[in-house]
Design a protein around this nucleic acid. Structure first.
Lengths: 203, 203
DNA sequence: CACGAACTTGACGCCTGCGTCATCTTTGCC
DNA sequence: GGCAAAGATGACGCAGGCGTCAAGTTCGTG
């Protein structure tokens, strides 16, 4: 009835797929990849276990899909946020703000990532989190070439920026209210000026 | 025969316990906590599955023991390394160097930690990794009070320092030879001067 | 409305892990 | 050397996950 295009059949299919993905994200976030089962996911959707296999061939496959989706989304947002960044400071600051805002908006995503970061690293040296890192590393290389940044080890820097983002992300959402501004200020100051750059004493 | 003190019985017991712990560390490092089974651990020791239960009541228990042991060891080493640190720079530098050296010396430990960091956070808000963080946070608070460090958010700072340590640890052991010096320089420069502090261009 | 295609369902057979425990082996001691 | 206590062993019953598939349900179409 209310379905716009493609008929009910297709709409249900899309809805089921989305529901399964969302359930999987929650389950992986709560239990971790290893302990989660296909049936945990199916149970959470209310669908039969067999239905899961109409959408994904197995557990690894849906995990992979989630990792890719998450990586794409994070990259998209960060790229959009820093499109207008004119300075190195704005570049770092806008990216962190965008990422932290994303986390607050969708905590399940963050739980999923932060809980399974080790697994992602171990399971795929080839997709998504690496992709985000690669993306960032490329941007850093460009910034160094342009002279906007000093000649740092971009691999270490990209890794450190993401690690700090994940860690602060976990901490800022536990503050009430979520401390997006403070975490952004901290991360920006850390990377641009070191600890001296994030002194909060009146100057 | 060659047993020195306490008799063979006790020696075997200690050896078994140690073997089980080491096997568990490897298995958790490779498979992740959730996917690992008590039998994977037992198989790796060559002992029967029932024997495992003579030493630990279940999987969570041995995981906990490992996490505590690892945290204690890391704290011990870092504390020892910075015992003589006179300046903020030495404080940060010595701690990172000690930690990175530890990682290179015992890569299984690092694999275990880095693979299961998310699980540790999720499973125990009460032990070890938190303990390391608390330890560090206390030191930072003292340094701030002394005026050796600016008035930073110690919670964020401690979290960031550990996250950077884990991340760089994963990356430095993949370089050949392991880049303890470079990673130490990077981390120290980052925290003390921001990216500008780790410029590697001739000045 | 009716029929076939598309999709969902959950029971099925198989497999593997769990924690226990009766049995066997090793050690300490006289 | 012989005996009791301590410890190791692995088979056992139970539970639950895996991927499949025959049967049932729902949707789209003439």
């Amino acid at each position: 009835m209310a379905t716009s295009a493609g008929g009910r059949r297709e709409a249900t299919k899309a809805a089921n797929r989305a529901a399964i993905l969302r359930a999987a994200e929650e389950v992986f976030g709560e239990l971790g990849y290893g302990a989660a089962t296909v049936r945990d996911i199916a149970r959470r959707t209310g669908l039969a276990s067999g239905t899961f296999y109409n959408y994904f061939p197995d557990k690894e496959s849906i995990f992979r899909a989630l990792v890719v989706e998450t990586g794409d989304e994070a990259r998209r947002r960060v790229a959009a946020a820093r499109a207008g960044a004119g300075s190195a400071r704005a570049f770092v600051e806008d990216a962190y703000r965008a990422y932290f805002a994303y986390i607050v908006e969708d905590p399940d995503r963050h739980a999923f990532m932060s809980r399974n970061a080790g697994t992602v690293r171990a399971l795929f040296d080839d997709v998504a989190l690496p992709a985000v890192t690669e993306d960032l590393a490329a941007d850093l290389r460009a910034a160094v070439a342009r002279g906007d940044l000093p000649d740092v080890d971009v691999e270490y820097t990209a890794g450190a920026m993401i690690a700090v983002g994940l860690e602060l992300g976990a901490r800022l959402i536990e503050r009430d209210p979520p401390d997006v501004a403070g975490a952004t200020r901290f991360a920006t100051g850390l990377f641009l000026g070191g600890l001296a750059g994030i002194d909060r004493r009146p100057r």
